[in-house]
Amino acid sequence: MSALLQCLSHTPLVGFVDPAPDVLVEVNTAIATARERIECFSPELVFLFSPDHYNGFFYDVMPSFCIGMAAHAIGDFGTAAGVISVPQGLAEACAEAVLADGVDAAVSYRMQVDHGFAQPLEQLLGGLQRYPVIPVFINAVAAPLPGFRRARLLGEAVGRFARSTGKRVLFLGSGGLSHQPPVPELARVEGLMADRLKGSGRHLPADEREARQQRVINAARRFVEDPDSLHPLNPEWDQSFLGTLASGRLAELDGLGNAELSAIAGKSTHEVKTWVAAFAALSAFGPYQASHRYYRPIPEWIAGFGAIAAAPTQS
């Protein structure tokens, strides 16, 4: 097997607002199974597609896509903090290949990432530095957003580069599914909050970061008690989306506009473009077979929570 894919929802609310114990067992079992599968595969190179939540990318310069030449995790919501093991030479070659393939992606030699990157590295790989990882950021919260087609083309370009390395590669997609936690929008804020979104939030004071995290925790608690307090989860759309990925019909999502997706499943659902990019990257290795599909709406985490794996059928 030359390639493997694993997509997994992330949530900063683990341990803060948790669902019933039997649901936790389900989720932890799905994660443990994925971790064991990855361990057996023993990847030589990992490509991690993930969004950010105004912790590393801001409106001082907001790219649609960015490939990290070096990266560190800030450790928000108790996730791992520290340097991610990025193979700089391979990351530079990837960025050059993606640009040559017609996809405009920024690069960063000081990429700052949050739980969206750190959580899958912890849960699936056992830490930030166990495997060489090329981090690929996809903007999923800061309008204007890239559409599904651009995310797919990015993934295909990354996949072609990955195939050219001759290494055993793992593609990870982090985020989604349907959800809309309280994320600020530049068009709706002013003063200090607007300044934070424009870049000063890159290094938040500890008390301000704690207050920000507590707002998300409080919103989750309210959502459990009052489902109308936030945009509802959409299990039907989530399951349909998983089916689209599993069947390889990625291009069918090209026509789904950003405003329509926000209305259907919530404004943070754009994180699923990381899953599309990961599957598109895998498609560079030929037809694939999806497996180990898991899904459950979990209001405690303000998320349609899912996982899915895939590998080339030739394997």
Rank of each mutant, 00 (worst) to 15 (best):
D22F: 03
D22R: 09
D22N: 10
V23A: 02
V23M: 02
V23K: 10
V23C: 06
V23Q: 14
V23H: 04
L24C: 15
L24S: 12
L24D: 12
L24G: 07
V25A: 13
V25G: 09
V25T: 15
E26R: 14
E26G: 03
E26L: 08
E26I: 05
E26N: 12
E26F: 10
V27N: 07
N28Y: 06
N28R: 06
N28W: 04
N28L: 07
N28M: 07
N28K: 00
T29L: 06
T29N: 13
T29K: 11
T29I: 09
T29S: 11
A30Q: 00
A30D: 00
A30P: 08
A30H: 02
A32V: 09
A32P: 13
A32Q: 14
A32I: 02
T33I: 05
T33N: 05
A34V: 08
A34C: 02
R35C: 10
R35M: 04
E36H: 15
E36K: 14
R37C: 10
R37T: 15
I38E: 00
I38G: 04
I38Q: 05
I38N: 01
E39H: 11
C40V: 07
F41T: 08
F41L: 13
S42K: 04
S42D: 11
S42V: 03
S42N: 08
P43F: 04
P43Q: 11
P43A: 02
E44P: 01
E44A: 06
E44L: 12
E44D: 09
L45I: 14
V46R: 10
V46Q: 06
F47H: 03
F47L: 07
F47M: 00
F47C: 04
L48I: 08
L48E: 00
L48V: 10
L48R: 08
L48F: 09
F49N: 13
F49R: 10
F49V: 09
S50Y: 14
S50D: 05
P51C: 01
P51A: 06
P51E: 13
P51T: 14
D52P: 12
D52E: 07
D52M: 11
H53C: 06
H53D: 10
H53F: 01
H53I: 07
H53T: 08
H53E: 05
Y54V: 01
Y54C: 09
N55D: 10
N55H: 03
G56K: 01
G56W: 03
G56V: 00
G56T: 03
G56E: 05
G56Y: 01
F57D: 12
F58C: 09
F58A: 05
F58S: 10
F58R: 12
F58W: 03
Y59S: 07
Y59R: 13
Y59D: 04
Y59H: 15
Y59P: 01
Y59C: 05
D60A: 01
D60C: 08
D60P: 06
D60W: 04
D60N: 07
V61A: 14
V61E: 15
V61Q: 04
P63Y: 07
P63E: 07
P63I: 01
P63R: 07
F65D: 02
F65C: 15
C66F: 01
I67C: 12
I67A: 09
G68Y: 14
G68F: 11
G68D: 03
G68Q: 03
M69N: 08
M69R: 10
M69V: 15
M69Y: 15
M69L: 15
A71R: 00
H72E: 11
H72P: 00
H72Y: 05
A73D: 09
A73E: 14
A73M: 06
A73Y: 02
